[in-house]
Nucleic acid binder design. Structure first.
Length: 462
RNA sequence: GUCCCUAUCGUCUAGUUCGGCCUAGGACACCGGCCUUUCAAGCCGGCGACUCGGGUUCAAAUCCCGAUGGGGACGCCA
């Protein structure tokens, strides 16, 4: 059975790149009827924070990615790593290194200056004898020669010369394990069959493979997916806008849209653009993943979000929109809310924007946009509004046909165009020059509110 | 500096495995038109790319080599 994992470190928010890696792992596992494991790599105790772990968990849940096993925390598994590190030491695959941080820093600087690669010079590799009073780290004995090659599931053959690799620290002075070691131990012990991760890990792969071999573990398959870049073609970071997954939630994006977008970043299935979660599981596979980095394109995400706002069931949109309405200080009548959404679908690209647009449907007082008032709430418009108000009071029904007849009659009587009558009304009711269809607005607002707002608009002209 | 990865419209990509069906397809964005009570949406149309140079071949976006561009990695971070 295929087993994949997502192994973030809780040293920051779950960002778009991480989320996509998680998504690919999850889709790959689901596609092959396998299992998806979540593991939190919190071996850096300085920088790991519980709030980030929570953020990662919440983010994945929001996106709709559910892990089958875990979350496992590396901080609870330290004995395991120590045990295997000691085993390597015993079997001659690792050694104690007494070099101090300062010495190493010095050596590196010198090497770089002389145009050499800044890797560890293996001073302690062949030293014999203990130095009981000195602190030490345990380093892995990387083979000195030969090549390490592997078949990458998205890139094909990749090989490295062993002399490019240096002897990595696997246990720190304080006996805590380091990343390249824990990842090997855990992936092996957890039975991970396919490691799908960002291509920034390609360089780590040969180092890890030699450890798998020394530990006599089965080497898993690797697939390195390209990183996501910002507009400047550099790795995505804070300055590229919303980078935490949950920020997209707060900004009014739908998880359906984000999942669809993320999946299409670096992966394609012919010319298809729209994929439900089920379709993604059915169609996703590693051979279709591209090799070059993709640039995050907000416009396309917005387009997809817009698409899902229009196509998901209104009830679902209502449920998702409610918190945004609440954030603006309003509560919506469920029936009315559905009506409002139907009129705003196709106009708003995000839930946040939709709530903003829906604002005038709520509350008693509305504010006029100054440009709108200046242009349409004019002395010239006053008689039209008065006439409308007068006739509207007598209107027996708010259905579109009755309303249309009324507005058209006024238009004809004044020798105007439809737009000349409707715009002042629109501003009177919404405060803005742009709104959903005016008859729909009137219907949603209801007779009383319409009358009061027209009265107020007339009074405002004065 | 060294190593590794990568290269089709502005962006995401199809096509590359098995060279001809590619005068390179789709989508986003952009521009124009239609529709129209505003704004959107929708519909129709337009702009727009095989990084470059050598090969191989009757034929190359597709295969080979090189250059260049871009990215990543070189931590007692993950």
């Amino acid at each position: 059975m295929i087993r994949t994992r997502f192994a973030p470190s809780p040293t920051g928010q779950l960002h778009i790149g991480g989320a996509r890696t998680a998504l690919f792992n999850w889709l790959f596992a689901k596609h092959h009827k396998g299992s998806f494991v979540l593991r939190i790599e919190d071996t850096d105790r300085e920088r790991s924070r519980d709030e980030y772990t929570r953020g990662i968990l919440d983010g994945l849940a929001w996106l709709g990615i559910a892990h089958d096993e875990g979350p496992f925390f590396q901080s609870t598994r330290t004995e395991l790593y120590t045990e295997h590190a000691l085993r390597l030491l015993r079997e001659g695959h690792a050694y104690k290194c007494y070099c101090s941080v300062e010495e190493l820093e010095e050596k590196k600087k010198r090497a770089l200056k002389e145009g050499q690669k800044p890797s560890y010079d293996r001073t302690c590799r062949d030293k014999t004898g203990e130095q009981p009073d000195k602190p030490y780290v345990i380093r892995f004995k990387t083979p000195l020669s030969g090549t390490v090659a592997f078949h990458d599931l998205v890139r094909g053959e990749i090989s490295f010369q062993c002399d490019e690799l240096d002897d990595l620290i696997i246990l720190r002075t304080d006996r805590t394990p380091t990343y390249n070691f824990t990842v090997v131990v855990d992936d092996a012990l957890m039975g991970i069959t396919h490691i799908i991760r960002g291509d920034d890990h390609i360089n780590n792969t040969p180092r890890q493979i030699v450890m798998y071999e020394a530990l006599k573990f089965t080497v898993p398959r690797f697939g390195h997916v390209p990183l996501i870049h910002g507009k400047d073609r550099a790795r995505l970071s804070k300055r590229h806008g919303a980078t935490s997954l949950l920020e997209y939630s707060d900004d009014g994006f739908l998880p359906e849209a984000l999942m669809n977008y993320l999946a299409r970043l670096g992966w394609a299935h012919g010319d298809d653009e729209i994929f439900s979660k089920e379709e993604l599981i059915e169609k996703f596979d590693l051979p279709n993943v591209g090799k070059s980095p993709a640039i995050f394109d907000m416009d396309k995400l917005l387009w997809l979000n817009d698409h899902y706002i229009k196509s998901l069931p209104v009830e679902l949109i209502a449920e998702r929109l409610t918190p945004f309405i609440a954030a603006l200080g309003h509560t919506a009548d469920p029936v009315k809310l559905i009506q409002i959404i139907r009129n705003l679908q196709g106009r708003a690209k995000t839930l946040k924007e939709m709530a903003q647009m829906a604002r005038f449907f709520f509350g008693e007082e509305i504010e006029y946009e100054s440009a709108a008032k200046a242009k349409f709430l004019t002395p010239a418009a006053r008689p039209i509004l008065e006439r409308f108000l007068n006739d509207f009071r007598e209107l027996p029904s708010l259905d579109e046909a009755s309303q249309r007849l009324l507005v058209e009659t006024i238009t004809k009587d004044y020798g105007k165009k439809l737009v000349d009558v409707i715009q002042p009304i629109r501003v009177a009711l919404s405060g803005k020059v742009a709104s959903p269809g005016i008859f729909e607005v009137i219907d949603i607002l209801g007779k009383d509110v319409v009358e009061r707002r027209i009265e107020r608009a007339i009074a405002s002209i004065a």
